[in-house]
């Protein structure tokens, strides 16, 4: 592990209790992120991308259990320090941005007191100092008339402004890492662009690491340095964003990219590629490739044993025994 490594998580598993038995929502995910780097985690509903993020902050729904063989943040091991360890990271050294700011901001308190409360809990100091920092950050995230805004309640702000307040709140304690879970999904496209730009600026200015969880491959393409494609609770393909998106190798990544309408690639009205079948149940998943049932390149050994994530060129890994040939785009 180099000194630049900010986050190193190994073999993360999350189990959720359900009426029909425990559901393995995340099955052995390993992540690593360097300072100032952006990792995009993409996948469809139920692939475990949000559970992965929430387990890093111990914010899983009650009853859910997370285990990991290593959790190191900024060179220090978090595993074994229990809840207190993660709780100290949360809001302090790791900032979190959610999809719907209305659910994350408390509607009965003005935004000012919510911003200063986070800061004073972790850093102490006077209310005045905390307010000063709050005003500075609100201006930094592009909110005009910031001092007056402190007295406003979340419902008095537009969706875009609320998301900016959320970002300012995540930045209050100068975190080294920001985890953003679908931060722009609820926003209009022009506002989405502004928020993504803001996140990118902040990353450059403060050297913050960013984990961006999204279903939108376009967003990842424009924002993330690295990408991890998740399917059925596992990372199926990961590497540099540009390389993976230009030459996807896992059949699921290939299918996902092919299903996007893009007037510059597909003729208008022409049928889009689709992925047949549905995601397997993660209650008692079989010991086989989770994508085998839907895969056009399936081999007998795909259903014999679950494939392991293996090296696939420099900085690139894949969980597939029969990937697309590397040169398919050329």
């Amino acid at each position: 592990m180099s000194a630049l490594t900010l986050l190193d998580v190994d073999n993360l598993c999350v189990t959720l209790p359900t009426a029909s038995g425990p559901l393995s929502a995340v099955r052995g995910v390993s992540l690593s992120l360097r300072r100032g780097e952006t990792l995009g985690i993409v996948g469809e509903s139920g692939c475990g991308k949000s559970m992965t993020a929430l387990s890093l902050l111990n914010l899983l729904p009650s009853g859910a259990k997370a285990t990991m063989s290593r959790y190191a943040f900024d060179g220090e091991t978090v595993t074994g320090r229990g809840k207190r360890g993660i709780r100290n990271l949360r809001g302090n050294r790791i900032g979190m941005i959610f999809q719907e700011p209305m659910t994350a901001l408390n509607p009965v308190f003005p935004i000012g007191s919510q911003l200063t409360a986070v800061y004073r809990r972790h850093k102490g100091g006077s209310e005045a100092a905390a307010r000063e920092r709050a005003v500075m950050l609100l201006e930094r995230v592009g909110i005009s008339n910031a001092a007056a805004r402190l007295a406003q309640f979340p419902h008095q702000l537009s969706g875009g402004l609320r998301q900016r307040v959320m970002i300012a709140m995540a930045l209050m304690c100068e975190p080294s890492l920001i985890i953003a879970d679908e931060p722009t999904t609820a926003l209009d496209v022009t506002i989405q662009m502004q928020i993504l730009k803001l996140l990118a600026d902040i990353k450059t200015a403060f050297g913050t690491g960013l984990i961006l969880i999204t279903h939108d491959l376009g967003v990842v393409s424009h924002v993330a340095d690295k990408i991890a494609v998740m399917y059925a609770g596992e990372v199926v393909e990961t590497g540099r964003t540009a390389e993976i998106l230009a030459a996807p190798r896992h059949p699921y990544t290939v299918g996902l990219l092919g299903s996007l309408p893009d007037p510059s690639r597909t003729a208008p009205g022409a049928p889009l590629a689709t992925i047949p079948g549905t995601v397997p149940s993660l209650i008692d998943p079989p010991d086989a490739c989770a994508f085998a049932d839907r895969c056009a390149r399936v081999l007998p050994r795909c259903t014999a044993a679950a494939p392991a994530l293996r090296q696939d060129g420099p900085g690139r890994s894949i969980r597939c025994v029969n990937p697309e040939p590397a040169a398919w785009v050329a």
Binding site: V189, T190, K197, G218, S221, H222, A242, A246, L257, D262
Partner: peptide, 14 residues
Amino acid sequence: ASVLSVGGTGLPDL
């Protein structure tokens, strides 16, 4: 300009 297509990089200022 807000359309973020796969393969594109960078974020234009609107």
